[in-house]
Design a protein around this nucleic acid. Structure first.
Lengths: 129, 129
DNA sequence: TGTATCGTACGAAAAACATCGTACCTTTGG
DNA sequence: CCAAAGGTACGATGTTTTTCGTACGATACA
């Protein structure tokens, strides 16, 4: 029954950084222009702000980039799954003292979790043995 | 359709604020001194830092306080459950596009989620019908 | 070939968060 | 009554995160 510290390689992405990661996860390796356009679909951001963020992300080692063209292509270093698992782990540890079942109870008790979702989860569990 | 006219949207607590909330959740309404002592069990914090944070939390409406005594007693406005549900909800939406079962899959795939936890979850689900 | 357009680099301002020092008030005990 | 101990208030400062202006190089094309 351990809920140890996450053996954390990479620094935790900030909120703004996460937004960018999600675009890259959804659409694959992209230019700053592309990411910025997507972000602007949600809220107003200046191009250079996004550029800066992505440069920082790269400094931190969260993104890498292909500079062979003038329009640099940015790519997440870690797979979406791995990063999300890390974030989830931290979340569970912080809010639920590492107890996944505790978290589950809240998900199941949440009205926003649909019957369909619950059925999905059940099937998942049954298929695990 | 849910009956909820004022979908209570309190500002998201910051990291430092969450630490304080957790103490209050665990030990109930407390003085700054008490909370600060608890925090100092984990890391060094100056008394006035904790005081300030708790004052800010109060300004934000996340805590309220009983000022009838010199030693003010601080109390979370919302129940632990409610706040956690809110945070969880935000988490699921942000990282899993609202899909609880997606999140589940990761929890179950996570080695840190013990067999025991999984059994716990199964029992939970079965007892739900 | 000149100029408008689109790109990167990067410092610095702005905003959000966190910490602390100091002033000052109340209570307590000798 | 006075000093020590312990409380609150709050501005100032430090840090991190976010945003943006400006400089300047490459590209496109009229």
């Amino acid at each position: 029954m351990k809920s140890n510290q996450t053996e954390n390689n990479l620094p935790e992405p900030t909120k703004a950084e996460l937004e960018i990661l999600q675009v890259l996860w959804e659409f694959g390796p992209s230019t700053v222009r592309f990411v910025n356009d997507k972000l602007n679909g949600q809220r107003e951001v200046n191009y250079t702000s996004t550029l800066k963020q992505m440069q920082i992300l790269t400094e931190k080692g969260i993104l890498k980039r292909d500079e062979s063209q003038m329009k640099h292509i940015y790519i997440p270093v870690e797979a979406e799954e791995k990063t999300k698992v890390q974030l989830l782990d931290r979340f569970v540890n912080t809010l639920y003292k590492g107890s996944a079942s505790q978290l589950m109870m809240q998900l199941l008790g949440n009205e926003k979790t649909s019957k369909q979702e619950i059925e999905e989860i059940k099937r998942l569990l049954d298929s695990m043995d």
